[in-house]
Design a binder for these strands. Sequence first.
DNA 1: TTAAATTGGTATGAACTCAGACCATTCGTC
DNA 2: GACGAATGGTCTGAGTTCATACCAATTTAA
Lengths: 244, 244
Amino acid sequence: MTGSAAQHLPEAVLRPVRGHHAFEACVEQLGTAIRLGVYPLGSALPAERELAARLHVSRATLREAMAALRQAGLVETTRGRGGGTIVTLKPRTPSARAALRVTDAKRQDWLDALEFRRVVEPGAAALAAQLELTDVRRERLERAHEEVVHAGRPAPHRQADSRFHLTIAALSGSPRLIEAVTSVQSTLHEMLLAIPVLDTNIAHSDRQHATVVRAILAGRPDRARKAMEHHCDDTAALLRGLLG
Amino acid sequence: MTGSAAQHLPEAVLRPVRGHHAFEACVEQLGTAIRLGVYPLGSALPAERELAARLHVSRATLREAMAALRQAGLVETTRGRGGGTIVTLKPRTPSARAALRVTDAKRQDWLDALEFRRVVEPGAAALAAQLELTDVRRERLERAHEEVVHAGRPAPHRQADSRFHLTIAALSGSPRLIEAVTSVQSTLHEMLLAIPVLDTNIAHSDRQHATVVRAILAGRPDRARKAMEHHCDDTAALLRGLLG
DNA sequence: TTAAATTGGTATGAACTCAGACCATTCGTC
DNA sequence: GACGAATGGTCTGAGTTCATACCAATTTAA
């Protein structure tokens, strides 16, 4: 052991090399995409061969994952030309009293997700605001925002909210940031399904979304970041309060 | 396809499910930890059984990875009680003219790492500054900083710099942030080995480190973040200039 | 000197994953 | 109606990974 060895670092740096088997990871990722509304109710997933290529797994493994999703009722599959797999999962309506059964480890992970979110989502907003956005991209942002505003019932609103945040991450153009926000939104989604939704919270959230959109479209990175920070802080305060 | 389907999101969200082959992932992670100086020259890695448990792989798989590291000259292994695996890799001295052979995909990944770094490392510094640090943790930070200042030659300095940034991430206490910074530092390390080092750059970098440390120890999150942002910006400007 | 403990080294069979080929079903087009 | 194209469904053999033993070498302590 040399003098420069830092005893505390190895423990912090080394982490499980991967959570599980490949097909479980596929279920996880596709399930997340469906629950977050990346693939909304009734939309079609890509063909198996294409999905397998995109996820870098064999078609056999992907099909195991599809079978699991099918059995869990998230998708349905039909054969033949024009067939394929479509989403049948109706977005869940947020409801309370699930928040009590969480283990301590999960609670820790949830709190960590809130910290991480407060770093990466404002960063993504700032990056998006800093870029010269094409008209197509500006429209994507406006459309995603409008979908949140016009989503009436809680369940579709929840999905539209996820899509809104993912859209901003996608606008940033950074693959690592997109992955980080996707991961965070997945955990956040889980948390938000476990608490009751209040109309005042939603209205407040929508106003903050509008501020973020204005700042991004105006090309004001600092303002976009601050606005997103406030949004994350307020959501986090709500969740921390209800989860302990 | 419902009206709310966002066509651009799936492409951005779906990503390869993992770098296949668990043993390659182990090689990657252990190799990174060794190169970054988390395990410095001469230090001992944990016993195989413990490492396997920590990385969530079987001992057989971990041993395949160890064999690869041994063959690559990074470590040496001895048997029996008191034996184990020690690091034998001398830190590489940064040198130019490797920067030309990078593929376009790798260049893109490198640029993305710089963007991502500019988000997560300032975030980690702010988080660390915001916490009530114990004396032990304050000392870890000061020690990591001193090791950078006192590291004379380029190669040890490079490792000490990595350890410094990883120490700040570890202080933040957020596992996701630690993972993000580790990943970013790994890519950054690769980049910095491909460019020539200038004494003025090092002196400038050291001054910025000192500013970050002061802000964290003073408990000033905004100041710590700004200082780290400047540091990331300056390093990024240097690297972008030399890499195109 | 001997025994216990700790470490790396080896072996085995089950489960998972892969790549590639081929089969079955359905739709569009000729 | 016949054919081609696109889709999901099935099969197979090789390679990987796993969990769980057990073996071998070395140090420490009784």
